[in-house]
C-alpha cells in the first residue's frame, strides 16, 4: 500500500483493506499522523452544538400551527369530505349529461316520446329548459355546500369530544 492509497483504504475500503491500511500506518509515521488528524476532524464534525433556542422555538411554533391544521383535517374527516365531493361531482355530471342530451335533442327538433312514460308536460318543459336545469344545479350545489359545512361542524364537535375523553381518561389514572 502506498501513502496515497492509505486514507481512502482506511475510510472506504473493505475490512481487509482497512486492516492493511492500519498495518501501513504502524510503519509510516506520516500516514499515522494523517489518520489521527482525520479522526480528530471527524470527532469535531460529529459533535454538535445544542440547537439555538430561536431555532427550537421556530420548530415548536411550526408544530403548533400544524397541529391546528391537522385537527381540522383528520384522515377520516378528509375521507368523508372526499366521499361528499365525489357524490357532488357525480350528481353534477349526471345533471349536465341530462341537460346536454335534452339540448341536443331539441337542436335536432326531435323530442323524445315522453308521453308514454306518463310524464307531465311541466316536467318535460323543465327537463329541457337550460335555465331551469342551471337553477337546479345551483340549488344542488347550495345544498351540498350546506351539507359539507354541517359535516365539518360535526367533525369538529366529535374531535373536541374525543380530546375531552382522552384527557379525562388520562387524568382518571391519578
Amino acid at each position: 500500500m502506498t501513502c496515497d492509497d492509505f486514507l481512502p483504504a482506511l475510510e472506504l475500503g473493505s475490512p481487509a483493506e482497512q486492516q492493511s491500511a492500519r498495518e501501513h500506518a504502524a510503519a509510516c509515521p506520516r500516514c499515522a499522523a494523517v489518520a489521527a488528524a482525520l479522526s480528530r476532524t471527524k470527532q469535531d464534525w460529529a459533535t454538535h452544538a445544542p440547537l439555538p433556542s430561536a431555532w427550537r422555538t421556530a420548530w415548536e411554533q411550526t408544530a403548533d400551527q400544524d397541529r391546528t391544521f391537522a385537527s381540522v383535517a383528520q384522515p377520516w374527516t378528509r375521507q368523508m369530505a372526499g366521499w361528499v365531493v365525489t357524490a357532488a361531482c357525480t350528481l353534477v355530471a349526471v345533471l349536465v349529461i341530462t341537460h346536454r342530451s335534452g339540448t341536443h335533442t331539441n337542436d335536432r327538433g326531435q323530442l323524445p316520446d315522453l308521453s308514454s312514460r306518463h310524464t307531465s308536460p311541466r316536467i318535460i318543459s323543465e327537463m329541457h329548459d337550460p335555465a331551469t336545469a342551471l337553477a337546479e344545479l345551483s340549488q344542488s350545489l347550495d345544498a351540498l355546500d350546506q351539507t359539507l359545512s354541517e359535516l365539518a361542524e360535526r367533525a369538529q364537535r366529535q374531535e373536541v369530544a374525543h380530546d375531552i375523553a382522552v384527557t379525562l381518561n388520562h387524568y382518571s389514572h391519578w
Partner: peptide, 17 residues
C-alpha cells in the same frame, strides 16, 4: 458516494498533513 468521498479524502490529505 464512495467515489466522491474518495475525491474528498484525496483533497483533505494535504490539509491533514
Amino acid at each position: 458516494v464512495k467515489s466522491r468521498l474518495h475525491a474528498a479524502l484525496v483533497e483533505l490529505r494535504s490539509a491533514l498533513e
